[in-house]
Each structure stands twice: as C-alpha cells, then as structure tokens.
Nucleic acid binder design. Structure first.
Lengths: 199, 199
DNA sequence: CCTACCGATCGGTAGG
DNA sequence: CCTACCGATCGGTAGG
C-alpha cells in the first residue's frame, strides 16, 4: 500500500524519465524540457520527477549523459573493429553521417543543439557539452594523425585542421537536414569528407 | 502633457527597442528575448513595448529583419566593389569570417543561432530564417558559378557543393568561437576556405 | 512517490 | 505610452 517503489522500480522509473527527456530535449532543447511537461507525459507529479534528480540542472546533466551513451553506441562503437588510421576514420565519419541521416535524435545532433543553447550560459551544463566536443574532436584528430603517420593521407596534413574540416562538413549537414530537410545534403557531406580522406 | 509621442519619437523608440532586442536575442535567443526584460531594460512598461509590434512573434520577425540589415552591411556590402567571380567570393568569405571574429553579434552568427532555435518549430519565424539562409547560399553559389565559368576554379567544380563546404567551414568556426573561444579557429577556417578557393 | 502550495515570470489585454 | 490586471506556467519546497 506504500507509494514507495522498490530500488529496481525506482531505477526503471528514472530510466523512463531519461528516455522521455532525451526525446523532448532533442527537439525542444534542454531548457524547453520542463518538469511540468515531463510529469504530464509520464503520468507523474512534478515532485515525483524532480525527486529522481534534485534539480532541473541535474536532470539536464543526466540527459546529456544518456544522449552521450546513445552517441557512443551509434557512432563510436561501429568503428571499433575497423583498422586504426584512415579506415577507422572513414568508418567514424560514415557512422556520424548515418546517425544524422537516420534521425537518431529527432532534433538532429543532440550536442550541436545543446552547444548552441548553452554556449552563452556558463555553468556545468555548458562545461559538459564542451568536454564532449573536446573528446570527439580529439578522437578524430588522433585517428587522422595515425593515418598521416601511416602514409594513408598526404604528408604534411595537419590532423587538427582535418578534424576542423570534418566537423564543418557534418555541421553543414546537420543544419541542412534540420532547417531545410534537404535530401541532397547527405551526399554533399559524404563528398566533402571523401575529398578530404583521400590520399 | 500627453503620454503620446510624435511619429518621429515613436520611430526612434521602436528603433531603440530593436537595438536592445538584437543584443539580447543574440546571446539569449529569440525565445529568451522576453517582453518583460526588454521593458525593464528600456525603462518602459510591457504594454508600451508590445504596442510597437503587437505580439512577441511580430517582434521576433522585426528583430530578424534588423539583424539581417546588420549582416548585409557587414558581409554583403564589402563585396560590392569586388570583381564578380573568385575575387568577390573571396571577399565575401573574408567578410563573413571577420564578422564572426569581431563578434558583431555577441552570441555569434545571429542566423545560425536562430536556425538551431527554430528548426523544430514550424511557423513564420522559422520560415524567415530559412529564407535568409537560402538567399545567402544562393549568393555564394552564384558567385562560385561565375568563378567556374571564368576558369578561376577547376573545371567541373560544383558551385552548390562548394557553397555547402564554405558554409561548413564557417559553421565550424562559429561553433569553435562560441563554445571553446578557440583562438586558432579563425585561421583554420581561413585555411579551409583558401584551399577550396584556389585554382 | 503524492497533494498542495510558494513566489516569480510568461505573453497578452482592457481601458484610458 | 501608462496602470492594473488575466490565466498559465515555471522551478522548487513542505510535509507526508
């Protein structure tokens, strides 16, 4: 008769809140994700939702973590079996484009959206977003460096410059898909990346 | 003794509201721009502010227009005296990068921010943002086409693909400046663009 | 996990 | 251009 739930139930409730939060925040933003809406959609009270996280900011950080797990599964993992260097870099980029093309998040890249939303608001959320971009760009740079060292890319190629340009192509893709629903954009992004990842 | 202002005064009040609105919306977003905050910062009542536009959405559209005037002055105009084709395309890109580097809008590119904020919200604001991107990308494409026709760029260069890649480089720049305050980013963007705009 | 509530703020309106 | 107000919603808390 107690309204208290078991630990297992509490965990699955928490997971359900996060699942719904990722869906909402993906299209409405991490600030547009409100406790009241979340509670209504989940058939819970606001305090029930908030009890799992403590504050809206803590919820936002947890949502970012959950979105990071999804990005890792969709984009990092497929590249694990690939050979280090150029091959793996190509697989990473193709998984990255495919993740946008398939609309894994309805609002496009979760982190690009979060970056734009929080780049002017100092705090833990902004820091968490920036850290994820640093990690991702570092990943691209590392693999690019291996490709250059192995002679798979032209000698003198700057891995950091290459990572910058790959990021640009994918950001242009994300933008074209979200704002224009442009069906040509994925092939344009693939073309841009292929040009940059050819000896 | 009347609180009513003359037409000239009303126009300058309207201009003052828009100036402040552009500043706020640039860093907080077009949705973060609230009537109450605007009124407080301008020492006016909310209804006084709203009377000039009628609704928040109408205000947002007016702010977009004002930001468009600034973009035109900063980025389109400097290219007018340049020779059509590759020369003008280079001037356009340099003005575009400089506009971001100088922080003409404190929140970075006003339209990239607005695009991310509204790409998931159908309506007049979203349509206005999309139309501005279409116009700008068309401008880049047209000048790229002239450059190809004049033999200033390699034969077979696709003007639309080139516009896509230029947009990507600048979006990566905007992102790096806003999220990381990365001082290397402008030179990386210039390098990426120079590579693409060389015979 | 709930009900019931808090102060603040939102966009907008009535009436002058 | 103002005061005074509307209903809705925000994040969060008290107390159970």
């Amino acid at each position: 008769m107690s309204p208290r739930k078991s630990v297992a139930e509490a965990l699955s409730t928490r997971a359900a809140i996060l699942e719904r939060s990722v869906a909402i925040a993906s299209s409405e933003g991490l600030e547009g994700l409100t406790i009241g809406r979340l509670a209504a959609e989940l058939g819970m009270s606001k305090s029930g939702v908030l009890g799992h996280f403590g504050s809206k900011e803590a919820l936002q950080l947890a949502v970012l973590d959950r979105a990071g797990e999804i990005f890792r599964t969709e984009v990092w993992e497929p590249a694990r079996p690939a050979a280090p260097g150029l091959t793996r870099l190509r697989v990473l980029c193709e998984a990255w484009i495919s993740y946008l093309e398939r609309g894994v998040f309805p609002g496009g890249c979760f982190f690009v959206a979060a970056a734009h939303e929080f780049d002017g608001r100092p705090g833990p959320v902004r820091d968490a977003v920036a850290a994820r971009f640093d990690a991702w760009r570092g990943r691209l740079r590392k693999e690019a460096g291996r490709a250059v060292d192995a002679g798979e890319l032209p000698a003198g190629t700057d891995p950091d410059q290459l990572a910058f340009e790959l990021l640009g192509a994918v950001m242009a893709l994300n933008h074209a898909l979200q704002l224009h629903h442009d069906p040509m954009a994925p092939s344009q992004a693939r073309h841009a990346i292929r040009t940059r990842l050819t000896t």
